[in-house]
């Protein structure tokens, strides 16, 4: 074989290998989707779509089992919404602090703090919630529900604890994405607003933040995805009974349902858990599509 032919083979081999590497991501997403659907749908057939999605009774191991996951879905939605409502304002204000208010020296303290908060593993957040938040919630619970005969005492492992932990965990995502989109707003816009006599705060909240809207929305949606998908931390603090998502109830989320029962579930119970996974996957895919749309909008805005 001539040198040139050898070179040609090496070059085209390289190209095929790199193409294969790139296609692997597509292949992975496709097989995850196929597996989630294939494993998640049989339970819908065996239990019944409405009974599964809208049933409120979760008794997977009873003699006459019942597999209603409505409360679990509701808990995930309510928990995510509440943590986003709590986390986003704090995150946005912190982002404003970093980009508009603080000097370089203060930003040099806050920025690394946010980065480190993002780096802390979720089990550590769970451990801290378990040791600090739950006892606090138990005290509150004993005061609020003193003498109540209907309230099921949880020892503080409740929805509020989970929401607080989630709000803290989505904080870095919201701060980082919002801050970088606020930084991208042009200086002229701010200067024009100030020149018209607007105060600094008016400029920030009436001009700069609205101009960075699509980036901030991206941060919010990423936060929603993070909160919805978090499993271990909230499994440690939320109790674990399937209940209506009320503040002082012990609750189960889509994710914690998987964490706590995948280890031992069998038969239809196991199939239902895969359906829980499928429901979560559908939620996440909707969020991913939303993100794609937001990014497109951001690119169009720039252009």
């Amino acid at each position: 074989m001539t040198n040139k032919a050898k070179l040609h083979i090496v070059e085209s081999a390289a190209k095929y290998i790199f193409t294969f590497c790139a296609v692997l991501a597509v292949f992975a997403v496709c097989s995850i989707t196929v597996y989630m659907i294939a494993k998640g749908t049989p339970a819908f057939k065996n239990v019944g779509v409405s009974e599964l999605l809208f049933g409120t009774l979760w008794k997977p191991t009873a003699a006459e089992p019942s597999f209603g996951i409505q409360y679990i879905i509701l808990s995930s939605i309510v928990g995510t919404a509440a943590s986003v409502l709590l986390g986003v304002p704090i995150g946005l204000f912190t982002a404003v602090f970093l980009t508009e208010v603080s000097g370089k020296r203060l930003a040099a303290v806050v920025q690394p703090a946010i980065e480190l908060l993002a780096a802390i593993p979720s089990v550590i957040y769970g451990l801290l919630g378990l040791m600090l938040l739950n006892p606090l919630m138990y005290k509150l619970e004993r005061i609020l529900f003193a003498g109540s005969e209907t309230h099921q005492f949880t020892g503080g492992a409740n929805m509020i604890s989970a929401v607080l932990v989630l709000a803290i965990m989505i904080l870095p995502t919201v701060v980082n994405v919002s801050a970088s989109s606020i930084r991208a707003v042009s200086k002229e816009l701010r200067a024009a607003s100030m020149a018209l006599g607007a105060s600094k705060m008016q400029t920030i909240f009436k001009v700069t933040v609205p101009a960075a809207k699509s980036g901030i929305m991206t941060g919010v949606v990423l936060g929603i995805g993070r909160a919805l998908g978090e499993a271990m931390a909230i499994n440690m603090v939320a109790g674990g009974s399937v209940n209506l998502p009320l503040p002082f109830n012990s609750v189960r989320f889509l994710t914690t349902q998987l964490v706590s029962e995948m280890g031992y579930a069998e038969g239809i119970h196991r199939q239902v858990l895969f359906s829980v996974g499928l429901v979560l996957y559908v939620f996440i895919m909707v969020i991913n599509l939303l993100l794609l749309k937001l990014r497109k909008e951001a690119v169009e805005n720039e252009a």
Binding site: V23, A25, I32, Y35, Y281, N288
Partner: peptide, 25 residues
Amino acid sequence: RIIEFATETLSGIPSIIFGLFGRIF
């Protein structure tokens, strides 16, 4: 575009779903 969308999607999938997929696959 498809490959980049797949990569984005993959980074948005929560780890518990990866765990579930890893378990069964």
